[in-house]
Design a protein around this nucleic acid. Structure first.
Lengths: 198, 198
DNA sequence: TTAGCATTCCTAACACCGTTAACAATCCTG
DNA sequence: CAGGATTGTTAACGGTGTTAGGAATGCTAA
């Protein structure tokens, strides 16, 4: 009486092919271009079949979000386990995190909601140049004031990245963190500013 | 012969009402919910009229992107001009930047492509907890090893924010920056790790 | 073997979206 | 007042996510 089992297998086969196909489309055309109809076309089933396996389109995306986090966590763990010194562990995990993001752009974009609205548009925004100058100037002053060997352009990137990351993560996360956020910002600024005195 | 002028005025009136209406919709329902048809409905014109004033929907978004950057730059400038010491200037600009992002969420989201796919979904991703533990552990070890008064949770936020920000900004920006990115990451790590020795 | 039932699957639609072609109405110019 | 430019409309095209209803299939039990 392996009929139910076979049906279950076939069901999961379809589910798997949905996810595989979706992943292939995303790899070829990006998240924006992923549509239910395209998946249905590719797996040679009609559209409603997909809704027998996933409640939403978002449910499909969530499946990949989970996979992405699982993969990232594995790689973080692997990086950490190469060292026993906490500082080394942190360092290794930072590089692993970085590597993950760029080796698996599709995953990372989905996981942290990095869409498309500005990726292309950012190039045509002259105001960004003004911002660069605005922040670069005091950094240059700091470098020369401290006789630091630091590269101002490098410091500029560190500065903005930290700010943007802090904001992005907090916008996507829990509210009610006003105090914590302020302390994080302060913490970063201290680290950043003392970084010139070398 | 003020006819052309009047027409020009009326034209700009419509353009303004398009932007005003769009901004109102965004404020009430978010960027995701902004559509050409909704704007047309609200200004009591037909849809193609909007295309007489803006080439694309994206052109409307770009207008707001520009406004956002102009506003941000003004506030950065104002913050900077309160001090003459570069370190203080940087500090003030960091806080101004932060304030801008949260006082003008709509602008910031548009400017840096912070969409929606994960904002809600992130809460239902248990793998995030694992990530937290993974990174928090060595940080705690560092804190106790250095007899630091630093809050591990705070350091954790600083750490991840920096990474995320660096990645996000680079994903949206120019490629060919491999070396610079690595140096920024290294720079951040140094600052971050020496931050424990206080 | 066949009648009936459950599951699987598809057709077709709904309500949106951005975009545009073709046409009607308006208004100014000569 | 005729003609032409400007302005605005209707209606469509192709796309999206989603779902209701019914057809076809395959299994079960008489």
């Amino acid at each position: 009486m392996g009929i139910a089992e076979r049906r279950q297998r076939q069901r999961e086969g379809v589910r798997t092919s949905i996810l595989d196909t979706a992943w292939r489309i995303v790899g070829a055309e990006g998240w924006q271009s992923l549509s239910i109809r395209k998946i249905a076309d590719a797996i040679e089933y009609s559209v409603p079949v997909i809704y027998d396996h996933f409640e939403n389109k978002e449910a499909i995306l969530q499946e990949f979000t989970h996979r992405g986090f699982r993969l990232l966590n594995e790689q973080l763990k692997a990086a950490r386990d190469q060292f026993s010194d906490p500082a080394r562990q942190l360092e290794a995990m930072a590089y692993a995190y970085w590597r993950f993001a760029f080796d698996n752009k599709e995953y990372y974009q989905l996981m942290y909601g990095l869409g498309l609205p500005t990726c292309e548009a950012a190039k045509r925004v002259p105001e960004l140049a003004a911002q660069t100058d605005l922040i670069l100037e005091p950094i240059k002053a700091l470098v020369s004031a401290n006789d630091s060997k630091a590269d101002p352009f490098l410091k500029f990137h560190t500065f903005l990245s930290m700010l943007h990351g802090l904001i992005a993560i907090n916008m996507a996360g829990n509210p009610n963190r006003e105090e914590l956020n302020m302390m994080v910002l302060k913490d970063f600024l201290e680290s950043f500013l003392t970084g010139f005195k070398s």
